[in-house]
C-alpha cells in the first residue's frame, strides 16, 4: 500500500483542494455574497479569480479554489446554490483540469544579477514585458506549479515585487464535469 503522495512544501498549492467554477449574475454585490458565504460557513478560500464570462453583460465567472479540509464539497455546493445570483456551479477535479495563472513580477536589476536573472526567466518560459535602467518586469502565464517555481526562483532577489492572479481552470477535453447537486 503506497502512502498518499506528498505535495506539501514542494508545491505551494493546498494538499487537497477543489476548483469550483461558479457562473454568477453580473450584479453589484455578487462577489461579496459569495465571499461572505464562504466566510460565515468557515470554508477557506485558497484563491479566487473573477471576470466577466461568455455573455459579458449578464454573467461573470468566479473560479474559487477551496480547501477541501474545511469545506465538505456537498455543503459548499448546496450553500452556494442557495445564493439567488448563482446560476451554475461546476466542480473541476484538479487532475482533470487545465489550470492557468498569471504572474507579474518587477525585479531590481544590476550588472551582477542580470545574467542569472535572464537565465531564470528563460528557463521558466517567462517573458519580459517592461524594463528601465534598474528594473525588469516579467510575466508568466503557466500552471500554478509553474508559477510557484518561478516565484521561488525570483524570491532570492532582494526587493522583488510579485503579483499573482489566482488560477482559472477549465475541464480537460473529454472529461465530464462533476456537479453533485442542481436542486435546492
Amino acid at each position: 500500500m503506497s502512502p498518499e503522495p506528498f505535495l506539501g512544501d514542494a508545491q505551494h498549492s493546498p494538499v487537497r483542494h477543489h476548483i469550483l467554477s461558479v457562473l454568477v449574475e453580473n450584479k453589484a454585490g455578487v462577489l461579496a455574497r459569495v465571499a461572505g458565504l464562504f466566510a460565515r460557513r468557515g470554508f477557506n478560500i485558497y484563491s479566487l479569480a473573477v471576470a466577466p464570462a461568455e455573455s459579458h453583460e449578464r454573467f461573470s465567472r468566479i473560479t474559487i479554489v477551496v480547501d477541501a479540509e474545511t469545506a465538505p464539497l456537498e455543503q459548499v455546493f448546496g450553500q452556494l446554490h442557495k445564493l439567488v445570483n448563482v446560476v451554475e456551479i461546476s466542480d473541476i477535479a484538479p487532475d482533470d483540469a487545465v489550470e492557468r495563472e498569471l504572474l507579474l513580477a518587477t525585479i531590481p536589476t544590476d550588472v551582477e544579477n542580470r545574467t542569472s536573472l535572464l537565465d531564470v526567466i528563460g528557463a521558466a518560459n517567462a517573458s519580459i514585458v517592461d524594463v528601465d535602467a534598474h528594473h525588469v518586469t516579467v510575466m508568466l502565464a503557466a500552471t500554478p506549479a509553474g508559477c510557484d517555481a518561478l516565484e521561488r526562483a525570483l524570491e532570492v532577489h532582494p526587493g522583488v515585487e510579485l503579483h499573482r492572479t489566482g488560477r482559472v481552470a477549465v475541464p480537460r477535453l473529454g472529461v465530464p464535469t462533476h456537479e453533485p447537486m442542481r436542486s435546492r
Binding site: P72, E74, Q75, G78, Q79, H81, K82, M181, S183, R184
Partner: peptide, 8 residues
C-alpha cells in the same frame, strides 16, 4: 426541500 440540509 433545501438540498443543503441533506448530509449537513
Amino acid at each position: 426541500i433545501d438540498a443543503a440540509e441533506i448530509n449537513k
